[in-house]
Design a protein around this nucleic acid. Structure first.
Lengths: 100, 100
DNA sequence: GAAACATTTGTCTAAAATGCAAAATGTCGT
DNA sequence: ACGACATTTTGCATTTTAGACAAATGTTTC
């Protein structure tokens, strides 16, 4: 275990990135929506009262964190979760919320 | 479901706060340490190369998010996790990490 | 109650995140 | 190749955050 100290530290860094990416209401709602299945950017845009460019930034944050992937089909780009396990975490969240 | 729209939104906001609080390497390592059991601030300080005041600020972020609680005993203040379930989320993180 | 200790809070600076608007990119139909 | 469409990227202004230092607070001990 000791010899993985550096590796573990990197991993902590990566984990922090992921948490950070989820630490924004808009991005969280995007992830919740993607839990229903892949979505076109145009659909996501309708959910929020924000500029398209802002939405695009949020999506790239999620993408850089490895939470979502995008795929182009025709004119549209579709986003989906890389790992549906993310959803399990939300139940944990609820617990934390109620324990407050 | 429709009638909970406002409530759900608040909840998303709160969840985002919690994720955000975890979205910093130092705070994440604090939480990982607390997983071993409650810890004195002085012990946590030894783990990092940061000013005591900075550590204290990080602890208050975690506290405001409802992730930890503090208790004074004598001269020292001890922090502990409000909800050990937080740890389960870390396994999810590992999955996301490996899927990248 | 004054000195010593542990932690928090106020204030500042530098760095990073956010959001909007404009320009750039990639795709389709013609 | 051109124009319309969907999305991303870039430039810029504003806000938020991390970190350091000093001052303030609360606790024990003498």
């Amino acid at each position: 275990m000791k010899r993985n100290a550096t590796l573990n530290k990197l991993s902590t860094q990566r984990k922090a990135e992921i948490f950070k990416a989820l630490g924004h209401p808009t991005r969280l709602r995007i992830v919740e929506k993607l839990a229903e299945g892949e979505q076109c950017v145009c659909v996501l845009l309708e959910m929020f009262d924000i500029d398209m460019s802002t939405l695009s930034r949020h999506l790239s944050v999620l993408k850089n964190a490895g939470i979502v992937v995008d795929e182009r089909r025709g004119k549209n780009i579709f986003y989906s979760l890389t790992c549906p396990c993310i959803l399990n975490m939300f139940d944990c969240m609820e617990e934390v919320l109620s324990d407050r």
